[in-house]
Design a protein around this nucleic acid. Structure first.
Lengths: 120, 120
DNA sequence: CGGGATCCGATAGGATACTG
DNA sequence: CAGTATCCTATCGGATCCCG
């Protein structure tokens, strides 16, 4: 479902699909966590969607799921080795954000200010 | 529409929303291009969606649109200065892809091979 | 607790025209 | 050429209930 002629599309689909960044970020910052903890951290996500995304991340090898058979059951999620290899990438992303997000905001303001005459 | 507790979500929304990577990549690799050229390069995108994404990228200041009033009209798109600042990020992404995409594939295979007993 | 099952509405995005 | 307009579908994601 990606777009050709772009070698990074596959990675983007894997790493930057919906909700994956908050999940990976949370796991990276706060370490191993249980399902409810993740749900509370991310706040706006529903259990259903969280499960979907966690399964996908687990399948892609970015996250490790550990099941503890007990009563009540306990399941913990943590970043895998492979997931950790994304850290520098995320760091650079954060750096870009800090450096250039203001410019984006300004660009938007000026774009919205000029009432797009669709030419010129 | 982003998720809290994750400082890079805003950037992801801007840079890695659907179709933006192929568009930015194409413009970056092949330089200034007209609408149809982009459409042909990306192949699977429809004119409507291409317009939407280009407008968004233009609004965010990542792409510059130049309108040449002539018959037939000519419109050209190119990466902006701000868009160019993403280059190292894309390079690192490509690098990560080359280094780790194989592991993702293997993880998927092994996940699919084991018929998920949902415990263990 | 950690989900799965089901229903359901919103919306992104494809297909197919048509125009300045 | 560079889009816009219209229609229509598919997928996403929210809400709710339930189960081991």
């Amino acid at each position: 479902m990606a777009a050709q002629a772009c070698p990074i599309s596959p990675v983007v689909d894997i790493v930057f699909s919906r909700w994956t960044t908050p999940i990976l970020w949370t796991l990276h910052e706060l370490g191993r966590q249980r399902f409810v903890e993740l749900q509370r951290r991310i706040e706006t996500i529903t259990p259903k969607v969280l499960t979907q995304r966690l399964r996908q991340l687990e399948r892609d090898g970015l996250v490790v799921r550990t099941y503890h058979p007990s009563v009540p059951p306990r399941v913990e999620y943590e970043i895998s080795e492979l997931g950790l290899s994304l850290a520098p990438l995320f760091a650079q992303l954060a750096h870009w954000a800090e450096a250039h997000l203001g410019e984006v905001d300004r660009a938007r303001s000026s774009y919205d200010a000029a009432g797009r005459p669709l030419s010129s």
